[in-house]
Structures are given as structure tokens and as C-alpha cells.
Nucleic acid binder design. Structure first.
Length: 430
DNA sequence: CAATATGATTTACC
DNA sequence: GGTAAATCATATTG
């Protein structure tokens, strides 16, 4: 300020009743204007400007109008604007908003990823309704999921309303300020450039507010996520039905318990869980089964029996239908119906209950007898020849000495069962 | 409440 | 990328 005044005074303007701002421009443009009457006029005008606040409103309006219509106004306006520009009076907060950019981008990305700021997908209420319908029986993780989505859509709605409100307020305020400045520019040197700058400043301010909104929205989403989707924090056991389905598959494919991608999908659908949950389950099951086979013996027998009954029914029905009595394995089913293929697999597995592969595990006596009886019952119900029962060729060796599941279906792995049994038996010491 | 069961995650390997 | 193995964190059980 001081500097500005000093500069103006040094430039040597007309001193006006002790008021500091004088106009160096007058001299500069003297040559073109020529006469001294202009000087007088301008001095008059300036005087009027300086005393304008002392006047009544009507008077002031009239003066303002007069000023605005003055023939010197455009020239003066430009010149004053120029001075203002040069003195740096109006240069303020021109270029910033750079440091916040990366963070803003991060926030935007996250909001987009969470589906808060992106396009409305499926419509919140509709999606929730669909999820609720899909729950059906005993799939309570879907309930939580729909709850999560409901909360998320709530957050999203709030976010959008607030954003809209901010935008509207920003626009209103901007137009208001612009109108004000335009009006002011009739009596004050306010260049369009300056107005533009002011608009930018306003926008920046509102952007920071928006960023705060985005930030708190992100926080809310994170909290929601941690509360609902962090399954590790709030682990839910699968439904009984789901574990049953999974166990059925596992024990009926014990020789090779690695479901294909399609099988996993089907299991996931059946159990109302995700495919990766199915993968997790099988991963855990395999490792835990292998670690302590005896512990799972009872379970294995249980599911083997269960599968046997259904398989027996299926086979019995098939036999009845075809009127055939061929002892070929019923494992020809290639697609979805794994109860049939399971029955085939089961035959491969049942002898293992007291078989050579799992000698390391002390089979409980109950398990033994149960397995025996099951085997017997299956042999009866399926009408298999007695010679098939206990045939060493059907010992699967699902697990080799190193505890690795290898393909028991391939005949090469069961070529010499007795030898294999012995070697496995001796190997189990480690 | 300790022991056990269980679903998920991490790490390392192929 | 899928899996084994170890581990974590919670749920369930006795």
C-alpha cells in the first residue's frame, strides 16, 4: 500500500485535497488529449468519486449515472484497470490448487471404485430387494451383503445431494459475485480479467469444500467396509446346509478333491457363497484332512454313507429304467451331476477306510465297523458281486507317502496295491 | 473361559 | 494363477 502511494506520488499527479491517489495517467495521455479542459473534467470527476459516499442515495445514483455516461469513462476505466493490474493490487491467490491434486485424484478414484461417485448400478433399492429375495434359506451372509449395499447407497445418496447442494450454492454465489462486480465495474476499475480471477477463487474455495465432502464420504465407506465386508473380523460360519454340500463333494471326490472352476461355481451357487470361499474351504479341508485323517474318519464315513444312499437310489432307478444288470461303474456322468460321478469315486474310496493309504491314522473301532457295514450295504444295494468288495485293486491310494494327492483315477497308480501298501506303511514313520 | 473349530489371509512354491 | 502350509481372528463348544 505504502509503496503504491509512493509510486503514484513520484509519478507526479494532480494532488486532490490531500487525498492520496493521484493519476499519473493524465500526463501520459496529455499529448493526445491536448487541452486542459479534460484535466479539469477529470479532477471534477475524481472529486465526485471521492465524495460519493457523503451523498444521498438518489443523488449518488444520479452522479453514478453521470459518471458512467461520461465521455472519458472508457478511457479512464481502462487506464485505471491497467494501473491496478500493474500494482499487483488484484493479484491474489491466482495459482494454487496444485498440491491438493493427487489427493483429490485418490479420493475420486476410491469413490469411483466403491461405486459411490460412479454411475448408478442397478439402483440401490432394487438391488437390495433382489439380494433379499435371493437369500432364501439360511444364506445369512447375503443378508449382510444387502445390508451393506443399502448402507452404501445411503452414503451415496447423501454424497450426491450434498455435492449438488454445493454446486448449486457455488453457482449462485458465483453469479451473485459476478453481477455485483459487473455492477461495481460501472464505477470502479474492475476488469473482466479480475472478475474471472474472482470466479476462480470462489471455485477453488468450493472445491476444497467438496474435497472435504469426498474425504468424509471415503471415511464413511471405509468404516462401512471394515464393519461389513472384513470377513476376517466378523467371521461367519457357513450354513449347515452349505457345509453339508461341500463335505459331500469333498468326500465323494476324496481321491482328487480339486473341484474344477465349473464345479466350484456350482458349489458356490448351491451354498450361496462365493467361488473364492469354495476355494478357501477346499484348501482348508484338504490340509486339515491330510493333517489328521483319523479325526475326519467318522465324518468321511457319514458322508460316504449319505452319498451311497443317494447314489444307490440313483443307480437303482437307472437300473430299473434300463433293465440292465451290468456291473460297469456308474461314473460316466460327465457334466454337472456329480452325485453320480461321486458314487463312482466313492467306491474307489471306501476301502481306504481301513486301507493301506492311511495307516498312519489310527482308525477308531467304531469307524472301522461303520465303514465295513457301509461297504457291505452298498455292495448289497447296488447288487455288486461279492468279489468286488475288498478287492485290493480298488484301493485308491488317494494320498501317497508324502501326503500328496495324486490322480487315483489313473490305473497306473493302483497297479501294485499290496506293495504300495507296504511301502506306504513303512514310509509313514516320518 | 479355555479348547477347539472354522473361515480368511499370508507366504512361498510351482 | 492355483495350491500347500502356516497363521490369524473369530465362532462355537464343553
Amino acid at each position: 500500500m505504502d509503496e503504491q502511494r509512493r509510486m503514484m506520488q513520484t509519478l507526479g499527479g494532480v494532488t486532490l485535497t490531500g487525498h492520496p491517489p493521484t493519476l499519473p495517467v493524465l500526463h501520459a495521455h496529455d499529448g493526445t488529449d491536448g487541452d486542459g479542459r479534460g484535466k479539469q473534467d477529470i479532477g471534477d470527476i475524481l472529486h465526485q468519486i471521492m465524495t460519493i459516499t457523503d451523498q444521498s442515495l438518489d443523488e449518488a445514483q444520479a452522479k453514478k449515472h453521470g459518471l458512467n455516461c461520461h465521455r472519458m469513462k472508457p478511457a479512464l476505466f481502462n487506464v485505471l484497470c491497467e494501473i491496478k493490474e500493474k500494482t499487483g493490487l488484484s493479484i491474489r491467490g491466482g495459482q494454487d490448487d496444485d498440491p491438493s491434486d493427487p489427493q483429490l485424484m485418490r479420493l475420486d478414484n476410491m469413490l469411483l471404485a466403491e461405486g459411490v461417485s460412479g454411475p448408478e448400478k442397478g439402483g440401490g433399492a432394487a438391488a437390495v430387494a433382489a439380494a433379499t429375495v435371493a437369500v432364501g434359506t439360511g444364506a445369512d451372509n447375503s443378508i449382510e451383503h444387502s445390508d451393506y449395499r443399502a448402507k452404501l447407497s445411503q452414503i451415496r445418496q447423501i454424497y450426491h445431494t450434498e455435492l449438488e447442494k454445493y454446486e448449486q450454492a457455488c453457482n449462485e454465489f458465483t453469479t451473485h459475485v459476478m453481477n455485483l462486480l459487473r455492477e461495481q465495474s460501472r464505477t470502479r476499475p474492475i476488469s473482466p480479467k479480475e472478475i474471472e480471477r474472482m470466479v476462480n477463487i470462489i471455485h477453488n474455495k468450493f472445491n476444497t469444500i467438496q474435497m472435504q465432502l469426498k474425504q468424509s464420504t471415503c471415511e464413511a465407506v471405509m468404516i462401512l467396509r471394515s464393519r461389513f465386508l472384513d470377513a476376517r473380523r466378523k467371521r461367519r460360519n457357513f450354513s449347515k446346509q452349505a457345509t453339508e454340500v461341500l463335505n459331500e463333494y469333498f468326500y465323494s471326490h476324496l481321491s482328487n478333491p480339486y473341484p474344477s472352476e465349473e464345479a466350484k461355481e456350482e458349489l458356490a451357487k448351491k451354498c450361496a457363497i462365493t467361488v473364492s470361499q469354495v476355494s478357501n474351504w477346499f484348501g482348508n479341508k484338504r490340509i486339515r484332512y491330510k493333517k489328521n485323517i483319523s479325526k475326519f474318519q467318522e465324518e468321511a464315513n457319514l458322508y460316504a454313507a449319505k452319498t451311497a444312499v443317494t447314489a444307490a437310489h440313483a443307480v437303482a432307478a437307472a437300473v430299473q429304467n434300463s433293465q440292465a444288470n451290468s456291473p460297469t461303474t456308474p461314473s460316466s456322468g460327465s457334466s454337472g451331476a456329480y452325485s453320480l460321478t461321486g458314487s463312482g469315486d466313492m467306491f474307489m474310496n471306501l476301502p481306504s477306510l481301513n486301507g493301506s493309504s492311511y495307516q498312519s491314522a489310527q482308525v477308531p473301532s467304531t469307524g472301522h465297523t461303520q465303514g465295513d457295514s457301509i461297504r457291505h450295504s452298498i455292495g448289497q444295494s447296488l447288487g455288486y458281486s461279492d468279489g468286488l468288495r475288498g478287492n485290493p485293486l480298488y484301493s485308491p491310494h488317494a494320498l501317497n507317502g508324502n501326503g500328496v494327492w495324486h490322480d487315483a483315477v489313473t490305473p497306473s497308480s493302483v497297479t501294485s496295491p499290496i506293495e504300495g501298501a507296504n511301502s506306504v506303511h513303512s514310509d509313514t514313520s516320518n
